[in-house]
Design a protein around this nucleic acid. Sequence first.
DNA 1: GCCAAGTTGAACGGTAGTGTTCAAGTTACG
DNA 2: CGTAACTTGAACACTACCGTTCAACTTGGC
Lengths: 194, 194
Amino acid sequence: MTRPLAKPTRRADAQHNVERILEAAVSCLSRDPDASVSEIAQAARVGRVTLYGHFPSRDALVEAALTRVLAEGEELLAGLDLTGDPRDALRVLIRSSWLLIAQSSAVLEAAQASLPPERVHELHAEPARRVDQLIRRGQDEGVFRTDLPASWLTSALHHIMKGAAVDVASGQVDRADAPRLISETVLAAYRVDG
Amino acid sequence: MTRPLAKPTRRADAQHNVERILEAAVSCLSRDPDASVSEIAQAARVGRVTLYGHFPSRDALVEAALTRVLAEGEELLAGLDLTGDPRDALRVLIRSSWLLIAQSSAVLEAAQASLPPERVHELHAEPARRVDQLIRRGQDEGVFRTDLPASWLTSALHHIMKGAAVDVASGQVDRADAPRLISETVLAAYRVDG
DNA sequence: GCCAAGTTGAACGGTAGTGTTCAAGTTACG
DNA sequence: CGTAACTTGAACACTACCGTTCAACTTGGC
């Protein structure tokens, strides 16, 4: 068995460091979209030079962080059962992923400042589609209102989740209350009739 | 009659320039919270040195811009008749001020990056109160739900307005549609009954 | 018309971030 | 154990922004 063309083996500690750097990047960037490379390296308890050894530029790091957090989101969403009543499905989705989705949005914002828009959209399109399709299904089944475009309902959900995350970060909202506040608000907003 | 202690007269063109600088600052900062002084000066069609002649530092400029946009908001809100059915009042408020409020929020965000938090809160407290009181009145009169705290309902409104502004800026939402989308969404979210 | 008030670009020093190089040190792993 | 892979801080050049100074210029207002 011949080994793949690219070097297939990195030393274990190096691989571990890459992991730590990505975690730190997601964490830092979702707090401050303008977080510096030094800041991220420090958070990862790694020298700045080491970081540049793994990522050629800040932009590359941001893109990797975005890719990572979106992949996490994909994985989480893929593991959820979103069949059944769309209202219940939405509750499940919110309860189990509002924080991650809010975090993704924050990193995504960081990415928009330094990555070409089409690249950002390309990475973000797939995960966003999952939420969007749930909402469209709810519309088709008559439990979500159709007098407003699905794209707006999706957008509103994102804004509310992101806003809740900000409120939690600033202490205005208790972390444990957030899922309920989001669900109650969004489901009411989505209801038909009115 | 002795003249006031401070020089009461600035040359007309200088005063005019201050005005242009503030307008440019609000405009630039609401687009990019990290807008540079050069950028703002250029947008105001004024030399950078001139700007520093009127504002001692970037922070001072940001604070002045925030004060100005919040004052505009105060003025606009003060001119509205928000008595009567809180739902109608909220519709009126949204239709006539969503953009300004969103803009204020954006500048406020810019301010938070460079001003002491208590100063920001101090400036922002009064205008925010007006919206908050309308919502509390709606709750008291039984037309807005009370199973969620008023502070969250207020917060959600802000998040939705801000989000809509972002969507408009990115072309996802037509500017003319925004007030309707916001009103329909928020009023549905606020409704009593479950 | 005069002059003070105001504007302007150029230039300067200071700070902070990015990305690179280097030489010395540490450590995973065969 | 030995070596190649990896890490690290110091130092460097580069860029961008802030805030200031200065000398020349324009313009408002009496």
